[in-house]
Design a protein around this nucleic acid. Sequence first.
DNA 1: CACCCTTATGGAACCGGTTCCATTATACCA
DNA 2: TGGTATAATGGAACCGGTTCCATAAGGGTG
Lengths: 334, 334
Amino acid sequence: MATISDVARRAGVGVGTVSRVINNSPLVSDATRQKVLKAMEELDYVPNPFARRLSLGRTLTLAVIVPFFTRPSFVERLRGVEAAIAETEYDLIVHNVETVAKRNVYFRSVPRPERVDGLLIISLSPSDEDVARFHRAGVPTVLVDARHPRLPRVVVDDVAGGRTATRHLIDLGHHRIAFLGDQYPNPFSFTSSHERYAGYRNALEEAGLPVRPEYTATGEHGRDVARELTHRLLSLPEPPTAIVAASDTQALGVLEVAQERGIPVPESLSVIGYDDIEIAEYLHLTTIRQPLFDSGWRGTHLLLRAIENGEGEPSCDLLPIELVVRATTAPPAE
Amino acid sequence: MATISDVARRAGVGVGTVSRVINNSPLVSDATRQKVLKAMEELDYVPNPFARRLSLGRTLTLAVIVPFFTRPSFVERLRGVEAAIAETEYDLIVHNVETVAKRNVYFRSVPRPERVDGLLIISLSPSDEDVARFHRAGVPTVLVDARHPRLPRVVVDDVAGGRTATRHLIDLGHHRIAFLGDQYPNPFSFTSSHERYAGYRNALEEAGLPVRPEYTATGEHGRDVARELTHRLLSLPEPPTAIVAASDTQALGVLEVAQERGIPVPESLSVIGYDDIEIAEYLHLTTIRQPLFDSGWRGTHLLLRAIENGEGEPSCDLLPIELVVRATTAPPAE
DNA sequence: CACCCTTATGGAACCGGTTCCATTATACCA
DNA sequence: TGGTATAATGGAACCGGTTCCATAAGGGTG
């Protein structure tokens, strides 16, 4: 591979001049610039990025730590991140977290200034201790779909989302509304389901409806667990006429069980999901849409700005949610 | 940040010795090793990876070029890649391709020895010219779900998959079987749909059934286009009693249209998909399962081996496919 | 014409590691 | 006891860039 001094020799100039051409310095005459560009072309020269980074003292690398990057909602966020980074000179390294141990390892080993210029964390809320470490390391860090008062973040208002979903059912005339979500606390400290639950409670209270404890069903995230929970809810002496699911995936479990038990949706049971993943449209699932791609995109821009200008006061971008009414919600039977 | 000479100074040794400790050289006495480890601990020292790479002359980085990394089947392959790399000291850089222009840019700029130690290409078949360039650059390259005679690759036998799917329908008693897939040639040179089509034809011919041109419907990949194509097939004077779809996504489009037109599945129309993505199980879709995660995993190991031992004769790993019979296929009505 | 300022340029020093070579200390052997 | 192989160590050179500093050439001014 050709190096910068090969180019310098061929063009009959010094290495400093070649470097200046590479970095578009105005301190090069046009004639010289042409000579150098010609030599670079002839040698098929591309600067060694690692030498460049070492010398610049910047890594030109961003890392993202993301849990379960196969789940559709995380993939969509990642796509936003990728799209934003593709326009820059940064490389992106993705760290996929599937166990708490892995998360802890990454939280310790990734945010180091000699490793990355910035860190993006998706859907994982770091502890105070973690955040203190990030700050000590001096690595700008941005959260997407996660919270910490001392870090800039892009979030959607999950409380409002839960409230909107529940409100929609109340407006249709439902009184017996159940909530099905992730258990809380959970090993990863995922909070979104819990906040949607808070919104659910708010909406009930605002409408003067009781919050019946037997109508709260939580468990590990996933369709299979959601199925079990649904069976439990529908076997109650007085079963709910509507279910708010904390995610579309869980709503799928509900729909599946309803079908198995011969309960027509939406005639005898209304179901609302959350996320509006691709399959939701196919299934005509009423749901709460959140701007997944956009959250990744904006988080990345927040991070790039923090790297540019220093961190400043941690900002909090609140993205809007949107109710998408399809065919799984309707007024109750009676 | 502490550097290697800070550690050397603190431990009262030379930088060479510290480097030997870092790299587990046996040429360090136990006493010295302990002193150095203690100094590293106290200074919270971690070697600068970029300096290390520059000095080693290896990038310790692998790149993967993957199209549409939100599509479920690609995500699952990527997860296999990620899992294999997480066990090594390599970093992974993901390049997402959504346009032909982007693919061409990545095919030119990514495979450079000063940039990556190895390249993995998923589902994109490079041209002869591309491959010649890869070889000239001296970057070991492995294909997953793509083919080129001069590159090692991990593929599934798409012809066999298409034949198995079609055969299943023939065995059920169908005679009027249509194929719905991607158009070919297409801008990305995706070949899998076309090969599945070849398998479809083989199966028909083996069974002595005619290949009716009006039963071949191809178009851009996606559910919406699949819907249109399905409408066309079902509006034929003699509509098919079964449809082989080249992917689960396209099978979803078929199911959706069948439902809209009030055609019961599988009683009046059998549908079989391909991939066995997560949602297929939920929809009880009969399909061909291919080992997606495993393909990424094995491709990565092939690449690591090629980096270790030099490339040798390009190998071709053929992964098995499997028929998964669920509830969307049955004998024809009459 | 001497002076100063600006523009262009070459090249050494540096980024933080690895590795090779020279040197010293120790052990073993005849 | 001298000689030699071996283990342990320090440090210079190097990887391939960037940047700063010194220097030269040209242009304008009094």
